[in-house]
Amino acid sequence: MTDAPRSPESAGPEPERAPSLTPPSASELVGAALGDAARRAGLDPSAGGPTGHVVWRAMGGWRGILESVLPSLVFVILFTVTYDPETQRGDLWLSLGLSVGLAAVFTLIRLLTRSPAGAAIGGLVATAGAAALALLTGRGQDNFVFGFITNAAYGTAFLVSALIGWSLIGLAVGFLMNEGTRWRSDKRKRRVFFWLAIAWAGLFAFRLAVQLPLYFAGDVTALGTLKLIMGLPLFAPLVAVTWLAVRALYPAPAK
């Protein structure tokens, strides 16, 4: 006798479907990369925490501040002290040597203490590359060229992402909040992420607008001083504004 067909209720569980083999989109890849970078910097909105603590972590604490400031500060001080008005040159070898040496010491300390060394290694490579360019040309102001390139690249990326509707801030936050790109269908989020990206683009453009004239004028002391002033002192408040804006869009669940 032929078995009667089973009803859906009596049928066993359906076999599991094979996972989708669709490759991730470009926006998903960019969002994942930016989100991972933000998480490592302590800027995960889902983690919560006071704004001041978040900004402090983003700057890397005392160690991060020293690693960011001291090499440039040492270069500016030594170049200024050894500057000869007649030749209009400072001692580049001494100034750049100690600057790169400090960056190398910070990197070595991180490696020996098994601390995350990615940022320190990147800073060492950038510092050494900038020093090599300055020594090659014999001009102290060329020590800042790589910084100009970095500011121009970041500023352009933030500006373009905002103008085409794919804010880099939105991509990073969407990944961190497990939202993907769904934020683009929310007008409020799109507007906030647009202006945040514009603000970051404005920061990088402002640095270039102020510092480039000093570069072409060859004023190394003023250029180095303004680079320090326009570094963390401008970075920290914008991190705080970004954090507060994102937390307003994604309030923590009530306990």
Rank of each mutant, 00 (worst) to 15 (best):
F158P: 01
S72P: 02
E14A: 15
Q141R: 03
P5Y: 14
G52Q: 08
A32M: 07
R184G: 11
A128I: 00
T156I: 13
G122M: 03
W195G: 14
A37W: 11
W183T: 07
V173P: 01
A201L: 13
P233F: 07
A47I: 05
V246I: 15
W93R: 13
A18N: 10
S185H: 15
K255C: 02
L234M: 14
A248W: 15
T82W: 03
G218W: 08
R184Y: 07
V192W: 05
L223D: 06
K255A: 15
G174K: 00
D186P: 04
T107R: 01
G165F: 06
I77S: 03
E67H: 11
P251S: 09
A209H: 01
I169L: 15
L96I: 05
P116N: 14
Y83V: 07
T80A: 14
A222S: 15
G90C: 04
L232D: 00
S99V: 07
Y215H: 10
L238N: 05
M1Y: 08
I164C: 12
R6I: 15
A172F: 06
L234R: 02
G52M: 03
A32F: 09
L43W: 03
P8S: 10
A245S: 15
A33L: 06
P251Y: 01
V76S: 02
L249T: 08
V55S: 01
L228D: 08
G48W: 06
L108I: 14
F193K: 02
I198H: 05
T156W: 13
G61I: 02
P15C: 04
L228H: 07
A209S: 02
P50V: 09
P5K: 09
A134F: 09
F158M: 10
I164R: 12
I77C: 06
